[in-house]
Design a protein around this nucleic acid. Structure first.
Lengths: 193, 193
DNA sequence: GCGACTCTACTTACTGGTCAGTAAGGTGTC
DNA sequence: GACACCTTACTGACCAGTAAGTAGAGTCGC
């Protein structure tokens, strides 16, 4: 009984992985259990065995994001703030290359059609991401490696909002993401103007 | 035969108005002809009479936005750039107060599930909005009433992306929109830091 | 000034497809 | 023999879209 080939967690994980791809490219409401079961070579009811309601799948997806994000933040806690920002930018590039948008983007856009449990998880997730962006620019300022107008709250929030927005725009206009990234670097005093 | 009470254009307009509200709060895929016909007190097929396919309704919605936006831009072409920015901010407040997001936000988020005709219209619409934001900050800079780092393209794009993103975030965190608006004013050198 | 025709703007009634979700049964493993 | 992990088979809801019919208003010939 090798845990790494345990069928139980294996199928469950495959479902989550597929659901993740579908959600980030099409949205939560625009994919069905059929999309997953077809790709996975199982029947629809197999998905319902692991996630009885679609809401359960949605909440599990968001909670997995939150855990992953927490690990991600912790893993690079020791990096200097500009390097953390670069990592953030690379993450956005990864989404862009897959023609996806960020989880907070799709979830906040679809918010009013999501079940209450998912809305709750989304609110926590988005608040954690925003707080992290604020934290980066705050520590960047404190360390003297970032210089900008206004407060860390204002600057962090606009960075987060602009990245979310530009990832969506980038699917229509490929230059938007690079342009926004470059402008953020400028506004944070990280490049010579 | 008074044209202002012409039943023809009247029902058609009511359908578009209702579809607009539904799209900005729930998204294009998350409303049905039933939602509209129920509210309007007509049968489903009546909507199909005016808009045979849902795609037709979607394209009509976007094209109406584009015409409205073009008029909006022209109507305030003589205003000084900071005043135009304020109008843009008020528009965002209007959406926020109705718990809606901006059309470009929902359309770009749902992009991959939209029919090709709608994608085409969306691309044109978004490009027009972005160009307008760039134009405001370009003329603001030229008039000496806006001062910022980088190019008008970079600054206009980040303003547009940040506004789109913050309108989405504002449904989860009521402070996001005001924070981003204030930060934009700061970054454009429109307030004393 | 009146019947015949036509057009707009609907209606009723339906189809086929997709959806989430359920119940009951089977199969292999500890 | 109990349990995890599926299957087959189904339900009811909702969906976009269509076909055929109709009420009323305007138009035309005469």
């Amino acid at each position: 009984m090798k845990p790494e080939t345990d069928a139980r967690t294996d199928t469950r994980k495959k479902i989550l992985d597929l659901a993740e791809v579908l959600m980030l490219s099409r949205g939560f409401n625009a994919f069905s259990y059929q999309h997953i079961s077809g790709e996975l070579g199982v029947r629809n009811a197999a998905i319902h065995y692991h996630f009885p309601k679609k809401t359960d799948l949605g909440v599990a997806l968001i909670e997995r994001y939150r855990r992953r994000f927490a690990r991600y933040v912790e893993a690079q806690a020791e990096l200097p703030p500009p390097a953390q920002l670069d990592r953030y930018f690379s993450l956005a590039d990864t989404y862009y290359n897959k023609q996806q948008i960020c989880p907070s983007g799709i979830l906040s856009a679809e918010l009013h059609t999501l079940p209450p449990e998912m809305r709750q998880s989304t609110a926590s997730f988005v608040e954690e991401m925003r707080a992290w962006a604020v934290d980066i620019v705050r520590r960047g300022q404190a360390a003297g490696v970032m210089h900008y107008l206004g407060t860390p709250e204002g600057m962090g929030t606009i960075v987060f909002a602009a990245m979310q927005g530009s990832l969506q725009l980038a699917r229509l206009d490929g230059t938007a993401l690079d342009e926004v990234k470059q402008q953020i670097r400028l506004l944070l005093g990280m490049v010579q103007a």
